[in-house]
Design a protein around this nucleic acid. Structure first.
Lengths: 206, 206
DNA sequence: GACACAAATGGAGATGACCTCCATATTTAG
DNA sequence: CTAAATATGGAGGTCATCTCCATTTGTGTC
């Protein structure tokens, strides 16, 4: 996708400095309070240089986002390789909440950009979505998750969690969303198995 | 909350014109492509007048939002009065998706503003959240919904749906999210009852 | 090392959106 | 009808964004 032109040494150095500074500012949550020109100063380059590397705020955001997404995708793959499908999915989703909580400012910033009609980040999140899709597909295959819902639904829920980051009881509610989604995803067959302890009693009652 | 000063006749007329035009522009999804000054022209008032009535874009958005929220809350109350709790909740959530789909541009615009750190809309959405909370509480009371999740989780999911409005398979995915949430919300007891048809077979198999 | 060519820099200044201010117009009260 | 209060609108100030290009820095060649 990205045409890999061999970047000159100083250019690469500046580019890296910009991304590093951006990540820092993101995490602090100051990304939108800062004049873009001032950001250039902050990173130790001129405005022209900033604009050459990242024509827009979003372009810069996407560069930062890439790193995040890559790390998360790795994590997904790793879980998928070492855990039963259903457990891998659950662990990954729970972990996402941890991750979002840990990088509060970053999550907030990304959610804001996400909502912008630009869609620049939609492209970047494609990879993340693929990872989730894989996790769900594996769980469907082994019968622990229903087969009539799309992984996109899970993405939507995650998006909601990320976007609502400033709610008072965020952490608790976010966990609840994951619980709802996971319980909702459980296939009828699996759900019945999980409830088998109760079932025995119920049968008698019935 | 809003100090009700008796507004002069022409002032009210202009104010209403602004809100009407805003709703129109919202629905078309052009809210952010439009220079705020130009918007004043469009509504037939001077920039000064626009700024007096609505000091910021968000202030204007909130005014539009108020109408939306009021309508939705009415709907929630009506459903709650005429249907069993679980059904009222389900119907309301399904209806939200219809509503968001019908007012695409508006939903999109509001999601964008929602994500902004301003939080101006968070206040406005309080009422909507209360309505959802009531619906959930009623369903918990009659035992059709588990009691260990907060209504806030449902709000998050809804938020995710609204914010992701430009996804290709939006409608299908949005419905899936609602399905997941509703199934996830079903209390263990209710879930078992709903599955009773399957249970009979299962018992034999077991 | 020195030369030349390409690539990159940075910051001064143009651009254009946002918002303020106030002389004028409209409404309301007495 | 008059005056006081209230509201109007758009010209112009302010400030962030982005462009442009004269200068500097890196890279490959002899």
């Amino acid at each position: 996708m990205t045409t890999d032109k061999p970047l000159r040494a100083d250019a690469r150095r500046n580019r890296d400095a910009l991304i590093a500074k951006a990540r820092e500012v993101f995490d602090a949550g100051d990304f939108f309070d800062l004049r873009f020109d001032d950001f250039a100063r902050l990173a130790g380059v001129g405005t022209g240089t900033l604009y050459r590397h990242f024509p827009t705020r979003e372009a810069l955001a996407e560069a930062v986002y890439h790193g995040e997404v890559a790390a998360l995708c790795d994590r997904a793959r790793q879980l998928q390789a070492t855990l039963p499908a259903a457990e891998a999915l659950a662990t990954f989703l729970r972990g996402m909440v941890d991750h979002i909580e840990a990088h509060e400012g970053l999550a907030r910033t990304l959610a804001t950009l996400m909502a912008d009609r630009s869609g620049a980040l939609a492209e970047g999140s494609r990879a993340l979505e693929q990872a989730v899709t894989d996790l769900v597909a594996a769980a469907v295959r082994d019968g622990s998750v229903r087969d009539d819902v799309d992984a996109g639904a899970v993405m939507m829920a995650l998006h909601g969690i990320g976007a609502a980051h400033d709610r008072p009881g965020w952490r608790v509610e976010a966990d609840s969303v994951i619980t709802l989604v996971l319980d909702g995803l459980r296939s009828p067959r699996a759900a019945r198995a999980a409830n088998s302890a109760y079932l025995k009693e119920e049968i008698i009652v019935l």
